[in-house]
Amino acid sequence: MAGHSTWDTLKAKRLRGEAAQEHPEYTQAVRDIDLGNKLREIRTSRNLTQAEVAKNAGITQPALSRIELGGGVPTLDMLDRIGRAMGVRFVISVGDSQADPIDLLAG
């Protein structure tokens, strides 16, 4: 359970406002936390409860809570459903930020 221990350590440091050491597991955990924070910000800015979003997205409230806390990463399908439940469309960018952008879904 080293990953879980690493996650708990990072989460505790972030909640205290401390910087985390650079480590691949920390880097991934930071991305997970950032995604969860962004989802929570969007949800609360739209005055939606976790229960409302979860119900409309077809997931459980505890599952949404875990995602918002950075403890779970949603699949693209789940992220799409969460976005629809909140009335937003997510645009996700992956890869080298300096490379030429290609829209895979463009016709």
Rank of each mutant, 00 (worst) to 15 (best):
N56C: 01
M78N: 13
R31C: 02
L39M: 15
A19Q: 06
L76Y: 04
H23G: 09
K13R: 15
I102H: 13
L48H: 02
K38E: 15
A57G: 08
A63T: 09
V73W: 03
T44V: 09
P24T: 05
S93C: 09
W7N: 03
R14P: 00
Q61W: 00
I67T: 12
R46P: 00
Q98A: 15
M1C: 05
R46L: 02
P62M: 08
D103H: 13
M86W: 01
K38N: 04
H4L: 14
R14V: 14
T49V: 03
S97Q: 07
G72Q: 12
G70Y: 04
E18P: 01
E25S: 12
D96N: 12
L15E: 15
V30D: 07
R89F: 01
Q28Y: 01
R84M: 06
G95E: 04
T75Q: 12
T9F: 15
A85I: 09
M86L: 11
V30N: 13
L10P: 07
I33K: 11
R84D: 01
A63R: 08
T49H: 11
G83Q: 05
T75Y: 08
I59F: 11
R46Y: 05
E52I: 01
A85N: 01
S5P: 00
D77Q: 06
H4R: 10
L35M: 11
Q61V: 01
S93T: 10
